[in-house]
Amino acid sequence: MTAEPSTAQHLFDGVPFEPGAAKNDPILVADGVRRAFGGLVAVDVDHLEVQRGAITALIGPNGAGKTTFFNLLTNFDEPDTGSRLFEGNDLAGVSAYKVANLGMVRTFQLTKSLSKMTVIDNMCLGGTGQTGESFFKALFPFLWRRQEAEITERADALLERFKLSHMRDEFAGTLSGGQRKLLEMARALMVKPNMVMLDEPMAGVNPALKQSLLDHVKGLRDEGMTVLFVEHDMDMVQEISDWVVVMAEGRIIAEGPPESIASNQAVIDAYLGAHHDSALDLEAD
């Protein structure tokens, strides 16, 4: 007996398979977001809604503007024009750290494990609203000791779940690439986010660890979190995403469930080049 494949595709009932489609319950809405670097327009997205409680994949060929768009959504970069609403909060002019406190936390393509801090310190850092993070209160441990114990307990539970407990007191710099990805994901969960943004969670992870990472991402959704991830690995996209958004040349060219994407003509054109299956017409140029 195989378990019922976990999915949240029912959340997309009635949503048309087209770019900019309105979702039933969007957690994140981007509208008219545009970012240019000099003359190069890296991102020019008319409209995107991200469904709450689902795993959405953001894919596209190299240079499609995925990571730039990702930075714009998490406020690590400011768009030239356009608005982003997260749970109804306008993100314009909001610092990146405040976005995290609103409940949207991100990871990075190049893993940012804090090398010279222990794994447990990496985890505890993620706790929000820590009393002991004020300089004056830091001098009086009795003010924050209890909260610190709670945070450490939560961190230990997450390390257990991500199978990193044995590395608890080692420097994060001694972890392997895959373990760092796990640590970064676990650390993001310390923020207690509603939405987790993963920038290429599979990059540089060996196949053995991939499956467990996939299960962890599914686990986030099962706990009610919304996941948006950028990925190149099509196997991962097919296996775990409920909805796929395809970008090319800074624009969103297709949206839909994973099955519909593989056969989408615009997507094939974007990945393989336009007109690859129609006869070349040299006269036209």
Binding site: A96, Y97, T107, L114, M117, D121, T128
Partner: peptide
Amino acid sequence: RVLRAIREDEDAARSLGK
């Protein structure tokens, strides 16, 4: 801990709400 995190990687600290 936050100071040391900033020393290691400022963006990581920021992404965790610091």
